[in-house]
Simulated assay, not measured.
Amino acid sequence: MNNKVKALILDWAGTVVDHGSVAPTTIFVEAFKQAFNFDISLTEARVPMGMGKWDHIKTLGELPEIDKRWQLQFGQAMQANDVDHIYETFMPLQKQKVADHAAPIKGVLPVITQLQQQGIKIGSCSGYPKQVMDILKVAAAEYGYKPDACVASDELAAGSRPGPWMALENVNQLAINNVAHCVKVDDSAPGIAEGLNAGMWTVGVALSGNAVGLTEQEWQTCDAQSLKSLTAKAYQELSNAGAHFVIDSLVDISPILNEINARLARGERP
């Protein structure tokens, strides 16, 4: 009985709230524009999604196409002080907008409630810094989402994703004595890497998150061929990141937990 899943460590945007992980993406575009009158696309902004936001901005500046345009506009590669300035521009914009995207993804709250009633603890972590998470937690709680633990990207001296530290701090806060009894659920490659590096089972969320990047309304208006293409791409991206399992959304997690429990019973580990 003890050799079962004891905790889920859930990402926030694109996994539990904010269908399509819209809030952080649009703000990156706006922050680059306001800070330096420099244009990046939504597609580019999504590439490092899941990382801490300062690291996300730094990584964007290192993408070949962005680096080429940046050097053309400014005569040199992006510097650390440039990253600082964009981050400082990003923070108030994100704090203003994050509560607007706190609504839970359709169907996830009943699933989370059911898991908690079964005794499974719900941890959480995010690429958002604590200033933003403090706002998002309050807004999400008004919808009924209250995880048992929460760790932000700037709370730990060791760093954030793709390292294991936020996931492991959840293990600490939830008092779980075996990381193999934890499941990391995330919609981004860095978040999957975080779970793998922490020694956990990992589940990629394909359709509600960053891998597709569409709101629920946008998803519902897509034609059949687009849906098929986007689904295949998202599943492949998260599989390539090393996810043990990939599902459409967190709504589909229960059969996966049953499979993991069966594997644990056979003595398997992540």
Rank of each mutant, 00 (worst) to 15 (best):
N178K: 13
D55W: 00
T221Q: 15
V22T: 14
Q117L: 08
F32Q: 01
V17T: 08
K33V: 00
K97R: 12
V183N: 09
G195D: 03
Q79E: 10
G191A: 09
A77L: 05
W12F: 07
A157T: 11
K53R: 12
T59A: 12
P64H: 10
I112E: 05
W12N: 01
D11A: 03
I40T: 00
H56I: 01
N261H: 10
D252G: 03
M78E: 06
G191M: 08
E142R: 11
D55N: 12
A140K: 02
Q76L: 06
L60W: 01
A243R: 10
V17D: 00
E88M: 06
G14T: 04
A158L: 14
A13Y: 03
P48S: 05
N261F: 09
I256R: 12
P147F: 11
G209I: 01
L42N: 14
A102T: 04
G50K: 00
D186P: 01
G204K: 09
T231D: 11
E259Q: 15
G61H: 08
F32M: 11
Y87V: 03
M51Y: 10
G242Q: 11
V151H: 04
V251A: 08
L63M: 15
E142Y: 01
C150P: 00
T43N: 10
F38K: 04
A31M: 13
A13K: 00
A232H: 11
L264Y: 09
G159D: 07
N178S: 14
P190V: 01
A45V: 11
L214H: 05
D187Q: 07
A167L: 00
V98G: 05
